[in-house]
Computed example of a mutant assay.
Amino acid sequence: MNDYSFASLPGIEQEELLWLQELTRNYSTENRQRFLAIYQGRRKEPTIILICCLIGLIGAAGIHRFLMNQIGLGILYFLTGGLCVIGTIVDAINYRRLAWEYNKKAAIESAALLGL
């Protein structure tokens, strides 16, 4: 498996690509393929987070927080209208950072599942 295998992930940015390559640097080709398969299933694409956040501006706020397994914040956003819409706007601006933080946790969990 070459170093370009992670580049095929939709919406991946340079920082995430470099971080994944460093995380899997010592993996064998087989383990890297298994990691990629697990990580693809857990990873959230930044544009999906943005779309769900924008839906929260006109509909049910907090959907993007539920997608990122932040159930408590999702309920809070839902009950307060996205913290009076301000929280939803801030999240819409920072959607890439939110997706990156979630994906970093997903990568660490995926590596832990492999036991490496």
Rank of each mutant, 00 (worst) to 15 (best):
L36K: 06
Q70V: 00
R32I: 10
G59Q: 01
L73I: 13
Q40L: 02
E30V: 14
A37R: 10
V90D: 05
I51C: 11
L54R: 05
K44F: 05
Y39L: 03
G56L: 10
S28I: 00
G81V: 01
Q33W: 04
R32T: 15
L79V: 05
Q33P: 10
L54I: 14
E30I: 11
F35M: 12
F78I: 08
Q40C: 02
I49F: 09
I63M: 03
N31G: 03
V90H: 04
F78A: 14
G59M: 05
R65P: 11
I51E: 07
G59D: 00
T80W: 07
L50D: 06
C52M: 15
L50E: 09
G59C: 01
G72C: 03
G56P: 14
I58Y: 02
I49C: 02
G41C: 04
R32P: 14
Y77C: 03
C84K: 11
G87V: 03
S28W: 00
G56E: 14
Q70M: 01
Y95F: 14
G62M: 14
I38T: 14
L76E: 06
G59R: 01
G82E: 03
L76K: 08
I63F: 00
T80P: 11
I51W: 09
S28T: 02
L57I: 03
I63Y: 03
T29N: 12
A61T: 13
G87A: 05
C53D: 04
F78E: 05
P46V: 07
G82S: 06
L50S: 07
Q33L: 10
I58D: 04
I93P: 06
P46H: 02
